[in-house]
Simulated assay, not measured.
Amino acid sequence: APDLFARGGRDIELGYEAADGAEGRRIRMAIPLEATMADIAATLALARQTGPVAVMGFCWGGSLAYLSACRLAGLSAAIGYYGGMIVDHIEEQPQCPIELHFGRNDPHIPLAGVARIHKAYPMMPIHLYEAGHGFHCDERKDFDAPSAAIAWQRSMTFLNEHMHS
């Protein structure tokens, strides 16, 4: 996986406290999206040398997984968890199978936005969970073990269906 914060500094490690989140957002906003996509493209080019490649991301990474599916060639599949920027890029069409996961109680991603994504791509698997933002991360307050387990199983099934040589 590329170190998506490397352009913002060396050895950046952030937790899930409010100050860490604010610092992460500051770094993310200072790095042009085109540069981040270039880093992902370079990583995918290297990984494709060994076989089929998929992307999976959480939060900002969930949005980047969607954008990778739309903008980068050669992906077999993409999976995005609670990607808040997806609705802002809804006009960009995925070029590979993609599956999305969202929490119904996510204060950062309105259900109306998720509904817009579903309306634009009715055949795209979009799963909703009775959980909040970050429900898959066991270090966050919104971690929800049952939702995380179901989402992970769905993700692995999706990858198994789409990852072939």
Rank of each mutant, 00 (worst) to 15 (best):
I79V: 15
I79Y: 10
I79D: 08
I79S: 11
G80K: 07
G80T: 09
G80Y: 10
G80P: 05
Y81L: 02
Y82K: 07
Y82D: 11
G84D: 04
M85P: 00
M85I: 03
I86D: 04
I86E: 06
I86T: 06
I86K: 07
V87W: 08
V87G: 08
H89Y: 11
H89N: 14
I90E: 11
P97L: 08
I98Q: 07
E99K: 12
E99A: 12
E99G: 03
L100C: 01
L100W: 02
F102W: 06
G103H: 03
R104M: 14
R104A: 12
N105V: 06
P107H: 05
H108M: 13
H108E: 12
I109T: 05
L111P: 03
A112L: 08
A112I: 07
G113D: 14
A115S: 08
A115E: 14
A115Q: 13
R116D: 12
I117W: 01
K119R: 14
K119W: 07
A120I: 00
P122A: 02
L128R: 12
E130W: 01
E130Y: 02
A131W: 10
G132R: 06
G132S: 05
G132K: 06
H133P: 03
H133S: 03
H133K: 03
F135H: 09
H136L: 09
D138V: 02
E139M: 13
E139T: 12
E139R: 15
R140G: 11
R140A: 09
F143W: 12
F143Q: 10
D144V: 04
D144E: 05
D144K: 04
A145F: 03
S147L: 09
A148K: 02
A149T: 15
A151S: 13
Q153H: 13
R154S: 01
R154W: 03
M156R: 11
M156L: 14
M156I: 13
T157D: 15
F158I: 06
L159M: 11
L159A: 01
N160T: 15
E161P: 00
H162K: 02
H164A: 14
H164Y: 12
